[in-house]
Design a binder for these strands. Sequence first.
DNA 1: GGTTGTGAAACACTTCACAGCC
DNA 2: GGCTGTGAAGTGTTTCACAACC
Lengths: 239, 239
Amino acid sequence: MSPRQTNPKDPVSGLPQKGIPEATVARLPVYLRALHGLKDRGVATVSSEELASAAGVNSAKLRKDLSHLGSYGTRGVGYEVEYLVYQISRELGLTQDWVVAIIGVGNLGRALAGYGGFASRGFRVAGLLDADSSIVGQHISGLTVEHTDQLETIIKDHGVSIAVIATPAAAAQPLCDRVVAAGVTSVLNFAPVVLNVPEGVDVRKVDLSIELQILAFHEQRKAGGPVGELPNGYIEVHQ
Amino acid sequence: MSPRQTNPKDPVSGLPQKGIPEATVARLPVYLRALHGLKDRGVATVSSEELASAAGVNSAKLRKDLSHLGSYGTRGVGYEVEYLVYQISRELGLTQDWVVAIIGVGNLGRALAGYGGFASRGFRVAGLLDADSSIVGQHISGLTVEHTDQLETIIKDHGVSIAVIATPAAAAQPLCDRVVAAGVTSVLNFAPVVLNVPEGVDVRKVDLSIELQILAFHEQRKAGGPVGELPNGYIEVHQ
DNA sequence: GGTTGTGAAACACTTCACAGCC
DNA sequence: GGCTGTGAAGTGTTTCACAACC
């Protein structure tokens, strides 16, 4: 959902940048997770075939993806797990810490706050915010929930660069506007709305209901295609 | 994350099917949500430009997407909101009900169980299951949590066709195997693992940590590219 | 022998631009 | 005049298949 980047230009020189394809970027975290698994099991070296299988892709795609980062493998041997973990982490920006604020502390916000893989890999939750005063003050996963009035202060004091929006739909856009005005340039949106943001701000959307609808489409196709009555007054015409 | 469908073949005839592009399918739910919003506001007719803007895409893409469903617009006028809602719903399989089971009732499972947009649009949650006996028996969103021992029984008795897996990573694959063995052919996976499923089963993955890592990549690039020390013993060589 | 890295081909998706229709 | 529907062009992604290398 982030604005598609075609031939990204360097903001300073205006020249085309090295540029890793967006599709590749989206898979690097998957490779990274598989590599961590291998590392934990004491595996030192892995072939593209093995790693691809652990990541659920085919080996040609894996090799092409990794080739965008550099030549980090050894022909006839494979990839050194630890070295590759480091290179992918670095490329993804996980060798530095990113400060996150979670806005909206309902069930979902709580689930996110308590999510382990979060803090572990370079993401630090610096604030939990909610507009509901009966939630403000609660202690969750070692943090105290603060009121959304404090949003600008918290973003600036902690240097938040990623905002996670887990509010009801109606609250999302106004909060997003404030977050962006306060300097945040990356937003992860769980609210079921399309957020409007200025150029230069990245938004990614996670939407349960959309995922279910996509599954329903395929499920229906397995079962033999669309069925259903037309609403009153309409005549069915297949093009 | 569902297996990419290139030139889908009809399971019976083996001939190529009408086939709506996967990228289009993924956007139909977004259009549908925008259309519901327009309908609620009493809008009867909408142009591709207006609808595209509400959905966060450009109008050429919207028109191309809709053209895959049929010719449902009127030149010089636009699209009739209600009729389009119906056609998209039908195409997505939302004119029939889908029975869902949620497996894993931690914070995330609770958030999913309580998600309104769920029940409203053709998805009925028929079961909440957990392996933790201290959770089993709790009442959540009008349902009683049952033990995962009951998984096969619940799937068969209620005719579950979509399983939502919201368990810890280690539990996901075994539960997925059981779910598939019981006849489920669509899985929505929130656990941070790659699920292996047989041909014919669709899996979609939602992964918070991956989304954050993709945002971190773009955030880092805005800030001027990767930084970081190499681990001991490595020499940096740019291809 | 085994495995990577990569041009080239195949495929998928997006955007353009305008004919066709209301 | 305005807006849809769509071929054609442009762009991005995946897969193939093999040369290069260990």
